[in-house]
Amino acid sequence: MSETSPDYQFAHHTLDRFVYGDLRQAAIVNVGRYFNTDLYTGARFERLDGGGDRADVAHQFTAADLTAVRCLGTDIKPVSAIAILETHANRLSALLRRIPHTPIYEAPKSEIDPASAAGTLASMLLSDDFPHLGRMTATKLLARKRPHLLPCYDIVVARVLGKPRDITHCLHSWFHTDPERAKSLASIRDDIGGISDISLLRVLDAAVWMHGYEDTVETVA
């Protein structure tokens, strides 16, 4: 897929509003509220139990990873939890060992393509070996293990961004077509303070999610 695919034009324009445009200040306020208060359990997703990418657990899924996904409001059914933690643990770990920790804005596209270890692992998690898991839950599991390379995705973010068909490729092309985007996003993280341990991908995810969530709350109200 071309880096300038029209499928992603709306998403890229919307993301630019958060880092350059009219939604930047709201993003600073909202992301700060998300991570620096006790209002959102999702704030613990990367940090729970020291993080899913720390050296001693980076190449295996753990019970803490499944709990971290629950912090984002997503439950993993017991049959899939057993498959992840026990039945297919060795197969999953073998692929995790091949996935780098490179930030998405530095990684070549080959690291996220379908034939890559990340792409293969994503496909595996969507197979019949992991019943009822679902694409968005799979992205959260992968984001827990490689938070700098692989993004979370859920229905709120999908709605705000116009439902890009592949969120990882969408964000990879967004970062790589303008290196200043990563720098601007990093400056948002610096302006917020207290979240230097949070990946830029997760900062962006929280900004988009909070915007979409607040709109949903206001609409319902």
Rank of each mutant, 00 (worst) to 15 (best):
D113R: 10
G119Y: 02
S116E: 01
E86W: 03
Y105M: 05
D113N: 08
T102F: 10
S110V: 11
A89D: 02
L92D: 03
L85Q: 05
S116W: 01
I112R: 03
R91K: 13
I112K: 02
A115M: 09
A122T: 04
P100K: 14
G119M: 00
L121P: 08
E111V: 06
L92C: 12
S116H: 01
A83H: 04
R91A: 14
N90Y: 01
L96K: 05
I84N: 07
I112Y: 03
I112F: 04
T102A: 12
A122F: 15
K109L: 12
I112S: 03
T120W: 00
S110P: 00
P100N: 14
T87H: 12
H88N: 12
T87V: 13
A118Y: 07
H101C: 11
P108Q: 13
H101P: 00
I99V: 15
H101L: 13
E111R: 08
E106D: 14
I84S: 05
D113S: 15
I104A: 11
P103S: 11
A107S: 12
P108D: 15
H101D: 15
L95P: 08
Y105D: 05
H101I: 08
A94E: 13
T87G: 09
T102D: 09
R97C: 14
L121N: 12
L92P: 02
A89E: 04
S110A: 15
E111C: 10
S116P: 12
H101N: 14
R97F: 03
E106G: 08
Y105G: 02
